[in-house]
Amino acid sequence: MRMLVSVSCPIEPFNTMVKNGTAGEVIGRVVDEIKPESIYFTEQEGNRGAVMVVDVPDASYIPSIAEPWFLNFEAVCEFRIAMTMGDLMKSNLADQAQKWGEVHMN
């Protein structure tokens, strides 16, 4: 299952890690361990952050993705299931439309 993971790192302890020279090394270890399909570093609500695409076999892998960020950076992690175009095409939207298209909420 492919997931989109957003990571937001608060100013501390990250500033301290930047100042003492450990931030880059720890990020490198975390990324090497998680092995995301892609990762982009950006700001998240005014904090340092990252957005990763990861492929996980099942939900039990989520702690191995989140804990390195939680424990090293006191980060907030958000997980969203993500589909490729191929995944969307396999979902058979036409069947869903036929099944649910006539249902109206009052």
Rank of each mutant, 00 (worst) to 15 (best):
R48E: 08
A97D: 05
N72Q: 08
F73C: 05
Y61S: 12
D95P: 15
N92S: 10
T22H: 11
S38L: 15
W100S: 02
R80H: 12
T84C: 04
V54F: 06
C77F: 07
V103G: 00
P10Q: 07
P63Q: 06
A50S: 14
W69L: 03
M83G: 15
R48A: 06
E74V: 03
G21T: 05
D55R: 00
E33L: 00
E37Q: 12
D55K: 04
V76Q: 09
F41D: 10
N20T: 03
K90H: 09
A97C: 08
M83R: 09
M85H: 14
N92C: 12
N72T: 02
E12C: 07
A94H: 12
E102Q: 15
V30W: 13
N47K: 10
V18N: 10
V5C: 08
N72Y: 02
F70C: 09
N92P: 11
S91D: 05
E12L: 06
I27W: 15
A23R: 13
E37C: 00
E67I: 14
A50V: 03
R80Q: 01
A94S: 15
C9M: 14
V31R: 12
F70T: 06
N72P: 01
I11D: 15
H104V: 12
I39D: 03
D32E: 12
A50T: 02
T22K: 09
D58M: 13
L71T: 02
L88C: 07
Q98D: 14
C9Y: 07
L93Q: 13
A59W: 03
I34Y: 01
N20P: 04
F41Q: 12
G101H: 13
D87H: 03
E45A: 06
D87Q: 05
E45K: 09
N47P: 13
G49P: 08
F14G: 08
Y40P: 05
R80N: 05
T22I: 02
V31Q: 11
S6Y: 08
K90E: 13
E45P: 05
I62E: 11
W69S: 06
E43F: 12
I34C: 04
S38Q: 11
F14E: 10
T16D: 04
S8D: 05
S91V: 02
E43T: 15
G28D: 10
I81K: 14
Q44E: 05
V76H: 10
V31M: 13
I39M: 09
E78Y: 05
R80M: 01
A59N: 11
M105V: 09
M3N: 06
E12P: 15
S64M: 03
R48T: 00
Q98I: 06
E37G: 03
D58L: 08
H104N: 13
M17C: 05
N92A: 08
Q98H: 12
P13Q: 03
M1A: 00
E25W: 05
E74R: 14
S60G: 11
Y61L: 10
A66G: 09
M3P: 11
W100G: 08
A82I: 11
R48Y: 07
R29K: 14
S38E: 15
E74Q: 15
L4V: 08
A66Y: 06
P68E: 02
M52I: 02
P57K: 09
G46A: 07
D87G: 00
S8Y: 11
W100R: 10
V76S: 13
N47M: 01
P10G: 04
E74D: 15
Q44M: 14
S6V: 09
M85K: 15
L4N: 07
N47V: 02
L4W: 13
S6N: 10
G101T: 04
N47S: 09
P63T: 01
P68K: 02
